[in-house]
């Protein structure tokens, strides 16, 4: 039986890598993909900690999280398509209208 801390470390790392990808890539699609990576980390964490507390709450939460992830992916991609149509590029830097 692997210890909960190990899973948490893995989950944290997955989440952090997702954050790094989100913050540093300019391609809109890769940005959302990194978001999905963050979800992965969260799922791992949830299930591990749920095991720790010896109930299924964590897993049910993770299940709903899947639903959310699916929803988010769908809408995000719809928006990416729109944004691509608007500017003709997938570059996140094309959207700077709020520049101060």
């Amino acid at each position: 039986m692997v210890d909960a801390p190990a899973y948490v470390v893995v989950g944290a790392l997955l989440f952090s890598l997702g954050v790094v990808g989100f913050l540093s890539r300019r391609n809109l699609i890769v940005i959302f993909l990194s978001t999905e990576l963050m979800f992965q980390g969260v799922v791992v964490n949830l299930v591990a900690l749920g095991r720790l507390h010896a109930n299924l709450d964590g897993q049910v939460f993770a299940l709903f999280l899947l639903v959310i992830a699916a929803v988010e992916a769908g809408l995000a991609l719809a928006l990416v398509v729109l944004m691509y149509r608007r500017r003709g590029t997938l570059d996140a830097h094309a959207w700077q209208t709020m520049r101060g």
């Binding site: 948490v8 470390v9 944290a12 790392l13 989440f15 952090s16 890598l17 954050v19 790094v20 913050l23 540093s24 890539r25 300019r26 391609n27 890769v30 590029t89 997938l90 570059d91 996140a92 830097h93």
Partner: peptide
Amino acid sequence: YDTTAREPFAAVAAGFLLAATIV
């Protein structure tokens, strides 16, 4: 936009700090 990353230092620093805090 695929071949260059933006603000890599800030991004990596943020990620590192996040991971370190959680751990």
